[in-house]
Amino acid sequence: MWRGSRHESQRTYQIVFIITVVIAVIALLMGLSVFSLGAISAFWVMTLAYVILAVACLLRGA
């Protein structure tokens, strides 16, 4: 019972990590002027990625 729950939990955090990496890469491309998302700055997109990652890490420790 523990093992299945733990495995699902690890998988969830791996998915969150991959999502934050994708958001960070989008912010990097925005910073290099490859494309833009309108009025949103690359800084705020990168900040969003790190906030999502930080929340996931804090919830994992809880």
Results as ranks from 00 to 15, higher is better:
1 M>N: 10
1 M>Y: 09
3 R>T: 10
3 R>I: 00
4 G>S: 12
4 G>F: 10
5 S>Q: 07
6 R>K: 09
6 R>P: 03
6 R>A: 02
7 H>K: 10
7 H>M: 12
8 E>F: 14
9 S>F: 11
9 S>D: 06
10 Q>I: 15
10 Q>K: 09
13 Y>T: 01
14 Q>F: 13
14 Q>A: 14
17 F>N: 06
19 I>L: 12
22 V>T: 09
25 V>P: 04
25 V>Y: 09
26 I>A: 05
27 A>P: 09
27 A>T: 01
27 A>N: 00
29 L>Q: 07
29 L>F: 06
29 L>A: 07
30 M>Y: 05
30 M>L: 02
31 G>N: 11
34 V>L: 13
34 V>N: 02
34 V>Q: 02
35 F>R: 10
35 F>M: 08
37 L>V: 09
37 L>A: 03
37 L>K: 04
39 A>Y: 04
39 A>M: 02
40 I>Y: 11
41 S>W: 10
41 S>F: 05
42 A>L: 05
43 F>S: 12
43 F>D: 12
45 V>K: 00
45 V>L: 08
45 V>T: 14
47 T>W: 04
50 Y>V: 15
50 Y>W: 07
50 Y>T: 14
50 Y>L: 15
50 Y>C: 09
50 Y>D: 12
52 I>T: 01
52 I>C: 08
52 I>W: 05
54 A>M: 03
55 V>A: 14
56 A>H: 05
57 C>Y: 05
57 C>H: 06
57 C>T: 10
58 L>A: 15
58 L>S: 02
60 R>D: 08
61 G>S: 13
